[in-house]
């Protein structure tokens, strides 16, 4: 393993200044950062330990109903938090289905959003792929059963985060501290396609740190769901995941946000499918129609056409799942 030093910053601004330097990076839970160091994919000399930064911790329900998630909050805290489970259940469901209990006890919200792709070409020390500075994506013409069916090119990685689709479905934003000050960016705009830059998966600039995530209070009558399909039920990455937030008034859907995970280099929102649902009853038939629309632009690689079928099924199930909850909630209010 590469040798590196771990340094402790005084505060977030200090941490930001430190990781702005070359060959420095942040570490929190360390789940992915250490894996990449061990594999030699990264050879970072200095890791700046964010864990002591208390300001980046905590889960708070704000007076207006917004949810604040500190970037250092552990996945298991997200999974178990009563407010998140009640009002933002897609987010707790997503956290609960990630990895293993051991990893959920270490892995953080920020780390989950910023983890690097699981692509086996990216992680193999013997392949110098596009994302590592090479000139090609080996999944093209290679083994691509787990790769992107949307938004691929020139790299075909899929974004591995469980939380990202759920947070994007809720319209969450990230608070970012950097050398240039503080900025807030909608997560939907935060993730970047490889056509923009194949070397990164998001818009985080040198020295920037996500300090917290703000999830706006959902509309009245909103219900959410996160489901995923995995080959193995223990410790596996989703083949496809779907997060949906559905707002229903009476018997019709007033608003829907549907985001797929593990299908594209970024969390993949399907606005056309969302629009199809608006004003419609959340029936089996309408869910099917929306799901068909959700996958219409899929561009599978030779080995991953099956993911398109799974995506269609999961979108339909997510709509029906969230809508049945929403309908129940609507009846009660």
């Amino acid at each position: 393993m590469n040798r590196f030093e771990v340094v402790t910053p005084a505060d977030v601004e200090h941490a930001s200044a430190m990781i702005a330097k070359p060959n420095c990076a942040a570490i929190a839970g360390g789940v992915d950062v250490l894996d990449l160091q061990k594999l030699g994919v990264t050879r970072t000399a200095t890791l700046v330990n964010l864990k002591p930064l208390a300001a980046m911790n905590g889960i708070d329900e704000k007076p207006g109903g917004d949810l604040r998630l500190g970037a250092l909050v552990k996945l298991h805290e997200v999974a178990e938090h009563p407010v998140i489970r009640k009002r933002f259940s897609a987010i707790s469901d997503a956290a609960r289905q990630a990895a293993t209990p051991q990893i959920r006890n270490l892995g953080t919200v920020g780390g989950n959003l910023l983890q690097r792709p699981r692509c086996w070409y990216f992680r193999n020390p013997l392949t110098n792929c596009l994302k590592k500075g090479g000139d090609r994506c080996f999944s093209v013409g290679g083994l691509n059963r787990y790769h992107a069916i949307f938004g691929g090119g020139p790299s075909f990685i899929v974004h591995p985060s469980n939380l990202a689709p759920a947070l994007v479905a809720f319209g969450a934003s990230a608070h970012i501290v950097g050398p240039g000050g503080v900025r807030t960016v909608e997560l939907e705009k935060f993730f970047a396609l490889p056509s923009v830059d194949p070397h990164r998966e998001n818009d985080l600039k040198a020295g920037e740190i996500i300090t917290e995530i703000i999830v706006p209070a959902p509309a009245r009558g909103a219900r959410s769901i996160y489901i995923e399909a995995r080959e193995k039920q223990s410790f596996d990455w989703p083949l496809v995941s779907v997060a949906a937030v559905i707002v229903a008034n009476g018997k019709t859907v007033s608003q829907a946000r549907i985001v797929m995970g593990a299908v594209a280099p970024i969390p993949w929102r399907v606005p056309d499918a969302e629009r199809t649902l608006a004003g419609m009853a959340p029936s089996e038939e309408n869910a099917r129609a929306a799901a068909k629309i959700a996958i219409k632009n899929a561009a599978p690689l030779p080995d991953n056409g099956y993911k398109v079928k799974i995506a269609e099924v999961l979108v339909r199930r997510a709509i029906l799942g969230a809508a049945s909850e929403a309908a129940t909630a609507s009846d009660q209010t």
């Binding site: 699981r118 086996w120 070409y121 992680r123 193999n124 290679g142 083994l143 080959e231 193995k232 039920q233 223990s234 410790f235 596996d236």
Partner: peptide, 13 residues
């Protein structure tokens, strides 16, 4: 391409 316990899929609990 899957010489790891992450990518080489083994039955779990």
């Amino acid at each position: 391409m899957n010489p790891t316990m992450d990518d080489y899929k083994l039955v779990g609990p």
